[in-house]
Simulated scan of single mutants.
Amino acid sequence: MSNPSVRGVDVDPETRCAHYHTDRDVVAFKFACCERYYPCFRCHEARTDHEAVPWPRDRFDESSVLCGVCDTTLTVPDYLAADYRCPSCNAAFNPGCASHAALYFETEASE
């Protein structure tokens, strides 16, 4: 599947990009600053002219994480509870994304 609404650098049909392109790098995150999906914070930095604003906690009930394999959108709590697998298609997500969580959505550390 191809999701043309995901922006970034060399984004493939499953949302891998020039920066993160393993078989598990198949999620994209919506940024609150521009309401657009990017595969990673580096893609956002490369393709925009503004500072990235993570998805705010008061909007966690809105979908802001995209599975690049099946195009399912998830809320942040659903993504965090999914144990690094898409609840719809079971595609494996990269557990390494957890180390960048504060760049994509408000966490305790980013407040």
Rank of each mutant, 00 (worst) to 15 (best):
P95Q: 04
H19I: 03
L103S: 13
C43I: 07
V9A: 10
D83I: 10
A109P: 15
L103W: 10
R42K: 14
H44L: 06
A92R: 13
P54H: 07
C97H: 10
V9M: 12
G8F: 04
C40S: 06
T75M: 00
C33Q: 01
G96R: 08
V9H: 12
F29N: 02
E45P: 11
D12N: 11
V76L: 05
L74Q: 07
A81G: 11
V69P: 04
R16G: 08
H44G: 07
V53Q: 12
T48E: 13
F93W: 12
T73H: 05
F93V: 00
G68D: 04
E14V: 11
D83K: 14
V53I: 15
P39W: 03
V27Q: 00
P54T: 05
E62R: 10
A18N: 13
P39M: 00
N90R: 12
V76I: 15
S63M: 12
T15F: 08
E35C: 08
N90K: 15
R42E: 15
P54G: 10
F93R: 02
N3R: 08
A101K: 04
P39N: 06
D12P: 04
A18H: 15
H21G: 12
N94T: 05
W55N: 02
D23Y: 07
A46D: 12
R16C: 09
Y20W: 10
A32K: 14
K30Q: 14
R42D: 14
P54M: 07
Y104K: 07
D58K: 11
C70S: 01
A101M: 09
Y38Q: 07
E108I: 12
G68V: 01
A92K: 10
D83F: 13
D83V: 11
S99Q: 14
R36P: 07
A28K: 01
R7M: 15
C67R: 04
